[in-house]
């Protein structure tokens, strides 16, 4: 994992405040691969059941929060839907690291 504890906590906190405390969060992609360098930060969020409406508006709020803490770096947030069949969601679950 090539993110600092502070960065990971910032991502968790931003997800909790926009998708609910019970949101589940995974980091995936090149940042969880210690052998690689640089790269985007890829985040999968499964919203809390109480916060599963307006996924796009919530995502924008989360990204604004993260920009303040992490600066203008490239962060991709994928929001998981109920019965989500997108390959990227399966990849994130298979290869990602969940942030409790």
């Amino acid at each position: 994992m090539r993110l600092t504890t502070d960065q990971i906590q910032a991502i968790r906190a931003a997800a909790s405040s926009t998708f609910g405390d019970k949101a589940a969060v995974w980091l995936f992609g090149s940042r969880v691969d210690d052998a690689k360098k640089g790269g985007d930060i890829d985040v999968l969020v499964r919203p809390a059941p109480t916060a599963d409406d307006e996924p796009f508006a919530r995502k924008i709020r989360m990204l604004i929060l993260l920009e303040r803490v992490l600066g203008a770096r490239k962060i991709d947030v994928v929001v998981e839907q109920a019965n989500d069949l997108r390959p990227i969601v399966a990849v994130a679950h298979a290869t990602g690291i969940q942030i409790p």
Binding site: D40, E54, P55, F56, A57, K59, I64, Q81, D84, R86
Partner: peptide, 24 residues
Amino acid sequence: LALRQVRNQFAHDYPDSPTERFER
């Protein structure tokens, strides 16, 4: 900054779900 984040979502790497795409 919010308008800029909306813009960034046009360059998103992953396909959004249909719900989210319409909301976007």
